[in-house]
Design a binder for these strands. Structure first.
Length: 363
DNA sequence: GACTCGTGGGG
DNA sequence: TCCCCAAGAGT
């Protein structure tokens, strides 16, 4: 299914390439991983940048490379250490997969990041966009990308009359067709910069855009309405009871979540969902019995806080609790530990839990 | 192919 | 306060 639009002609493609590359030369962003020859460092940046804005990534990227300066350093590190470095970035499977892939590369590629696209795509956490991003940036390989920026830019360029999600293969073809094959590295970076700095989701700066005259959305005056979006369903809101359980020595009980799934491998304060008609206190007592097999007394309220994930929202109702009887067991977690408030910083926690720790310190 | 998987910032 | 969305990938 070819697009019979203006972008069809080879002549115009060359023109679009030149316009974008010229713009990039003067207006492209200066980012820490640009002009970086080490594929390991480019790889780290690409993973951190998945679904995450540049401004958020930069400090994590700098700290990461100090802590794990080489692929081998990452491969030999502890998973807990890796997750601690990732703490706060979200989508923790990225950190787990980065670690897993580093070990795999040491074992199967002699510790050298592979250059074959097929080999790169086999690595956990790397899909087509990230593979193209790494190999074009590190080796100038002529591989297209299709991230959120490129989807938005291309959807506007051809005035795509449907949500990008419903036209993924068409957009991949267009990204591949537009790619300046001899300058893949610069071209891919340039089109992402265009999306991030001019062709933004809201209030695109079309007057500054090198593709303005070629952009069908702009020419139709519908750039602010594109790309079209899918209808979204309302997010469920769950009420959660959370326990800060203290023993007679003043230590606090924390547990490590299962390796897979939401916040996998991170530590947390135990608790769970409040059932309909259930009080917070009853919920906490029940959950702790079910998950850890111990008896507690639910005490005073510490804090309540709201937190939003991608697919649901929660309100945490946190109470102090007193340990009464029983040795904590790992029934629905990997590990449990009694820690002091001084030791607790060494463990990686999800954001909602770091707010609880801050509240504990403030008391 | 539809779900799952975090967090921060902007409007 | 609420919604949107960002250098996507795994299941």
């Amino acid at each position: 299914m070819t697009d019979k639009s203006a972008t069809e002609s080879e002549l115009e493609i060359v023109s679009l390439q030149q316009l974008l590359l010229d713009w990039y030369q003067t207006q492209g962003r200066d980012l820490p991983w640009r002009n970086e020859p080490d594929p390991y460092k480019i790889w780290v940046s690409e993973i951190m940048l998945q679904q995450t804005q540049v401004k958020t990534v930069i400090p994590y990227y700098q700290r990461w490379l100090k802590q794990f300066p080489t692929l081998n350093a990452l491969a030999t590190a502890d998973l807990q250490e890796v997750l601690k470095a990732w703490e706060g970035l979200g989508y923790y499977a990225r950190g787990r997969n980065l670690h897993k892939a580093a070990k795999y590369i040491v074992r199967h590629h002699d510790g050298v990041f592979p250059t074959q696209p097929e080999a790169v795509l086999k690595l956990p956490g790397i899909g087509r966009t990230t593979a193209g991003g790494i190999l074009s940036a590190a080796f100038n390989q002529p591989l297209p990308i299709l991230d959120g920026n490129v989807k938005r830019v291309l959807a506007r360029l051809i005035a795509l009359p449907k949500p990008p999600k419903q036209a993924v293969s068409q957009l991949w073809e267009l990204s591949e067709r537009l790619l300046a094959r001899d300058r893949a590295k610069d071209f891919n970076q340039a089109i992402m910069d265009l999306g991030a700095t001019l062709c933004t989701p809201k209030n695109p700066a079309c007057l500054l855009c090198p593709w303005q005259q070629h952009c069908q959305a702009y020419n139709k005056g519908i750039q602010s309405q594109l790309p079209m979006k899918e209808p979204s369903s309302p997010l469920p809101h769950k009420q959660i009871g959370v326990a800060v359980i203290r023993n007679t020595q003043g230590q606090i009980l924390i547990d490590r979540r299962l390796e897979e799934g939401l916040l996998g491998g991170l530590w947390e304060f135990p608790g769970g969902k409040i059932e309909p008609g259930e009080t917070v206190q009853a919920c906490i007592k029940r959950e702790i019995k079910e998950e850890l097999g111990i008896e507690i007394e639910v005490g005073e309220h510490l804090i309540s806080l709201d937190h939003a994930y991608t697919h649901f929202r929660i309100t945490l109702h946190v109470h102090y609790c007193r340990h009464l009887a029983g040795e904590p067991q790992t029934i629905e977690c990997q590990e449990v530990r009694w820690v002091t408030l001084e030791e607790i910083d060494r463990y990686p926690f999800p954001k909602a839990n770091t707010k609880i720790i801050a509240a504990l310190r403030a008391r």
